[in-house]
Design a protein around this nucleic acid. Sequence first.
DNA 1: CGGGATCCTGGATGATACTG
DNA 2: CAGTATCATCCAGGATCCCG
Lengths: 121, 121
Amino acid sequence: MCPPAMTLSTPVPLADHRACPVTDVLHRVGDRWSVIVIVLLGEKPFRFNELNRSIEGISQRMLTRTLRGLEHEGLVSRNVFPTNPPGVEYTLTALGESLLEPLSALTRWALEHHEELAAKP
Amino acid sequence: MCPPAMTLSTPVPLADHRACPVTDVLHRVGDRWSVIVIVLLGEKPFRFNELNRSIEGISQRMLTRTLRGLEHEGLVSRNVFPTNPPGVEYTLTALGESLLEPLSALTRWALEHHEELAAKP
DNA sequence: CGGGATCCTGGATGATACTG
DNA sequence: CAGTATCATCCAGGATCCCG
């Protein structure tokens, strides 16, 4: 790696994911929840429990971890409103929104071809 | 999920990955090696050990498993030549090649923005 | 409401050695 | 050359309880 800017085949050290931007990004976003959160936040801002309810199957713990991770990477921003009771709103950063587009390319492919993918379980 | 074909926010059951094509695809391809293999095979056919040498850090075991997985999903095809010594060549299927395009969208994003991603380790 | 802390499990991955 | 087999390890993820 890494394609297509770098010449492939000509070996490039990639001991860990960070050596390759593509693999790196996939590892940050390729987990079970990140993409779902990003796409949801691409629609509108969400509150914590609002997200928790919208994403079936996610645990509080993983939602917290996912949001913290995305926030830490600069894809999501966390805005606290000192109301009563306190409210926390999550939105995409500009960087996060820019990811929406390439993600939708994958989304389209998935919707168009997922039936062709053989051997589910 | 699942965007954008389905209305987001309006909860859709996604107990496991298979409930959402996008998440499903990300889970099949979002592992540590699959994308690398796919992109490499997008360039030209590869032999087993050729791949093994081209992908730094991969173990024989994981290369085997990754190839088997991709083959099983119909993204990669395995062609055996009963020569001496026997040779095995891996190529992308049509489906596999079709994945190359959306993948390159992510690739471009990664190359353009990976520096903006904060907090490596 | 919006989390944090703790314990635990399975699956993904690696190292090493062996084989047709 | 192209794998298989075995054992060990690591970490995402779930369950549960607690807190301001």
